[in-house]
Nucleic acid binder design. Structure first.
Lengths: 328, 328
DNA sequence: TTGAAAGCGCTAACAA
DNA sequence: TTGTTAGCGCTTTCAA
């Protein structure tokens, strides 16, 4: 029914007016007699006309499209983040273009190209890759989430340092004596390093020796398990673990069982993220929850300020909270 | 650095050739002397030229954009499905536009409008809403996933009926005598009804009485729990549950504990979906796994066939498998 | 209050 | 092998 090839000109002919007039009706601009507006509306109805936004985009030099570049949507944290961002963008009538880099710098570079080619109006980036200088060279509005991307790119983070403190303090309160931290390698100053910093600071204050195991984000579940098995073998004394995210925490708990270490009696584990799905599927996990809805709100706010040429903050740090449950 | 306002004409001037020639170089079309190609490439480099895809889209009447309309990405099944789809689209150099309807028909309608306005080349729909006739009226290539949308719209499903059989059979093998099924209400013939059909058929064959509890997809966790509490109160004899998805299975297991029913001794539960995240966070769940990667592959295949005007199947049904774990 | 015409940046007949 | 020109569908200046 909706004839794709109906164009403004056809509506104009049908209504017996000029293209200009139809355009004015469409955009509600300029002086128009009630009668004309009426006629045009009728013609639009009759022909099932729908404006071609691409033509409009070409003229306006703006697509009302925002690209979301994240490692993957197949992870509770990023899935929720993208969902929250998308919801807010839709409310502002912006489309959300997905770009999941799989933590592969080459892919991320390709995405950036693909998405820039689609003339997006802005970029929200939460991918982990470093060393991609191309971002600096786009004059596009960008907001980064939990990732340092350069001095001039605003960043939204949660209070990672305090999160680290809360987690380690929780384990100490539980009486843990040998606390290990897992983290993913980061090649540049990155907010998640603050968790490790906090972990080390708190441990030092208590005269304990910090030990961190690096676990890449993009390796297989089995590969991660291997790292954790190594950890249990090398440190049989471990009685508390501060994991860098909830899925790793879950994995660690499982690997612990292989070593006959059961949570929370022989082992305490605190995770990080506290996304909806994780809370739903693993409510027993004690974790540090990041304020995902607020982070999304702030990110959109910063992006829109840039798009509208208004002033905006360079850094937004949002509070985390400890979710007390039964694994620690 | 990448000057947004550099256009084809500037490159032409810089290289001392016509716009056509530059366009030809860009698209690798027609006869070109090596020298010219070289000159043009140099000019492109020098000016940091990047083609404006919107202009190209206007001409070609194709955006290389595909819209994904799903209830939400904040759910393991849909998150993985969207991730798989997006990956395949990117490989074909198509952009993926997200549209998460939150299971709200009004929102879905708005999305459809927003996305159609963006002149997407195709639609992949897995939202649950019914009664949206607008889909029928777009002449756009559409593929539906696990949802009946009309005779002329191809659909990719997993073998829901066999999945239902497998699940119920598993519970029967465990010795369950009182098996309840949970499902979400569907307003039209929908593939998930086949699970219920299989459930009822198998139970009837064993002379048992089927009981199904309806749980809406879009209500809160607390609201769902209420339904399940009601279920345990009304049917204290229940010893086996075939849940319509894994998150509900997880919820049921938790609610069961409130009634002092512990899995798998006092209660067996089989879920449905078997998405990555669920397997990761709740590996103990016995479930029916849908072949998400294959479903995505097929969906893209059917969509691309439509876009390219090639013949395509109207229905694709893919096999499921039982994942044996410890909740049943 | 309305319309003619130019132009957004690109591509492709057609001509040379 | 290359260039001229019209046009994709829309918006807006400028003029009436």
């Amino acid at each position: 029914m909706t004839n794709k090839s109906v164009k403004l000109e056809d509506v104009a002919k049908e209504a017996g007016v000029s293209k200009t007039t139809v355009s004015r009706v469409l955009n509600n601009r300029g002086y128009l007699s009630k009668q004309t507006v009426e006629k045009v509306h009728q013609a639009i109805e009759k022909l099932h006309y729908r404006p071609n936004v691409v033509a409009r985009q070409l003229f306006r030099q703006s697509t009302h499209l925002v690209a979301l570049i994240f490692p993957t949507v197949d992870d509770p944290f990023f899935a929720q983040l993208e969902a929250e961002l998308e919801k807010r963008l839709a409310a502002l009538r912006y489309g959300a273009l997905m770009g999941n880099s799989q933590n592969n710098p080459e892919k991320e570079r390709q995405y950036l190209k693909l998405l820039l080619n689609h003339q997006v109006d802005g970029l929200i980036v939460g991918a982990h890759n470093q060393g991609i200088t191309e971002y600096q060279h786009t004059n596009l509005p960008i907001v980064s989430i939990e990732r340092y991307m350069g001095n001039n790119i605003p960043i939204v983070t949660s209070d990672n340092y305090h999160g680290g403190e809360l987690a380690v303090q929780r384990l100490l309160n539980d009486g843990c004596q040998h606390i290990i931290h897992t983290n993913y390698p980061s090649y540049q100053v990155s907010p998640n390093e603050l968790r490790q910093q906090a972990y080390e600071d708190v441990l030092h204050r208590h005269g304990m020796k910090p030990i961190t195991y690096q676990v890449s984000f993009d390796i297989s579940e089995e590969a991660k398990k291997k790292v954790f098995r190594k950890m249990f073998r090398e440190h049989p004394e471990v009685d508390g673990i501060f994991a860098d995210n909830d899925t790793n925490a879950s994995l660690i708990i499982r690997v612990g069982k292989e070593f006959n270490r059961h949570v929370p009696n022989d082992l305490k584990v605190v995770g990080f993220d506290g996304a909806n799905i994780t809370r739903m599927l693993s409510p027993e996990l004690t974790t540090i929850q990041q304020p995902l809805p607020e982070m999304a709100t702030k990110a959109i706010e910063l992006l829109m300020a840039q798009i509208d040429g208004k002033p905006y903050q360079k850094t937004v740090k949002l509070p985390v909270r400890l979710i007390n449950s039964t694994t620690a």
